[in-house]
């Protein structure tokens, strides 16, 4: 299986798009015709062929372009990757997990050779071939977390576990749905989730924290979240909100199909062995409305979800300004027929 890596952009001319195969494997997040915040955690078990869950860490046709976009973001704002001093060990844990899994899942793309602490890493798509000493940061061009996550799609938060809580003490965040690592670093689980509406009162975070603290090595889990993005911009950061916020006012009935994207985050949780920290990869997938409606079931269901979304959630997700236009556009694809069970495109 060779991946046909696309050359495309997530800024300026926004040349991003999904191939038909990539549309079919999009992780559509709505199991029913309505949405309410929930914990929705399930075991992260690899193996579902032709889905983004085939491997523990999915590599897809956008890999090279996403990594180029990440490098641009980091050059502009190095504060998007930070690690408090006590998190270096967790950085090495992360590097080990990502390298071993990538090499196992995609042997044609990645190769890892280990001889004690002398490691040799080859990343063919990005043209990287490095020898380094595991545990010795001076043998890598960046810290271990930054080094490996410059080669891995998605954001990564690394959570220290202590005092019956999880602490956002390291991470790399360049494809975020509007939260600032620089501001949130050092916060505990309840603090960094503080801005999320409704869920605290529902006890969602108390239950989620209890589950996550008991997570064990070798038994990762995942959940998903979603929002919407105007233009295929990966870096919807609060840092640059004053630059991209105006995009939200540019949606018209004519451009919905190309301009408006469903943005799905697959969030995963891994217990890291040396540091006892939790790794929290947040992988972002974008789907244009034109691409979404190639599945009649997804079109019907997303129309209903968006139309009936509680106002607080629409506000929090930043959809208020353009929701009516998108709902109106989607209604043309909803004949009122019932939708089948499950997430697949039919």
């Amino acid at each position: 299986m060779g991946i046909n890596f696309r050359q495309e952009t997530f800024r300026d001319d926004y040349s991003f798009k999904n191939s038909p195969e990539q549309i079919r494997r999009f992780p559509f997040p709505f199991p029913e015709d309505k949405y309410m915040y929930s914990v929705n955690i399930e075991p992260h078990v690899p193996g579902l062929k032709d889905t983004v869950f085939e491997h523990l860490f999915d590599v897809d046709e956008h890999y090279i372009s996403e990594m180029q976009d990440r490098a641009l973001v980091l050059a502009e704002d190095p504060l998007r990757c930070q690690s408090l001093p006590h998190m270096e060990l967790a950085g090495w844990d992360t590097l080990e997990l990502l390298m071993t899994e990538k090499a196992k899942s995609y042997p044609d793309l990645f190769t890892l050779t280990r001889d004690g602490d002398k490691w040799h890493w080859i990343n063919r798509p990005l043209g990287i071939d490095d020898h380094f000493t595991f545990g010795d940061s001076s043998t890598l061009p960046y810290g271990p977390l930054e080094y490996i996550t410059r080669q891995s799609q998605g954001d990564f938060a690394v959570l220290d576990q202590r005092d019956n809580n999880l602490w956002m003490d390291a991470g790399i965040v360049t494809t975020q749905a509007d939260w600032s690592l620089d501001f949130d670093i050092g916060m505990n689980f309840f603090e960094w989730h503080a801005p999320v509406p409704l869920a605290h009162q529902m006890g969602v975070f108390t239950r989620a924290l209890k589950f996550l603290m008991a997570m064990q090595q070798g038994q990762p889990s995942r959940r998903h979240n979603w929002t919407m993005t105007i233009n295929s911009r990966l870096d919807t950061s609060p840092e640059n909100f004053h630059k991209w916020g105006t995009d939200r006012a540019t949606v018209t009935p004519e451009n919905v199909g190309q301009k408006v994207h469903l943005r799905v985050e697959v969030q995963m949780f891994f217990r890291l062995p040396r540091s006892n920290a939790l790794l929290f990869p947040i992988r972002c997938y974008l789907l244009k409305m034109d691409e979404l409606v190639t599945s009649p079931k997804w079109a019907r269901r997303f129309h209903r979800v968006l139309r009936d979304l509680p106002n607080e959630l629409a506000e929090y997700k930043g959809l208020v300004r353009y929701r009516p236009t998108v709902v109106e556009w989607l209604s043309k694809y909803d004949d009122g027929a019932p939708t089948s069970a499950g997430l697949g495109p039919d």
Binding site: D93, E96, Q217, G218, P273, R274, S275, N276
Partner: peptide, 8 residues
């Protein structure tokens, strides 16, 4: 065997 952290 799996890697672990001191105290496990």
């Amino acid at each position: 065997l799996p890697t672990f952290s001191g105290g496990a």
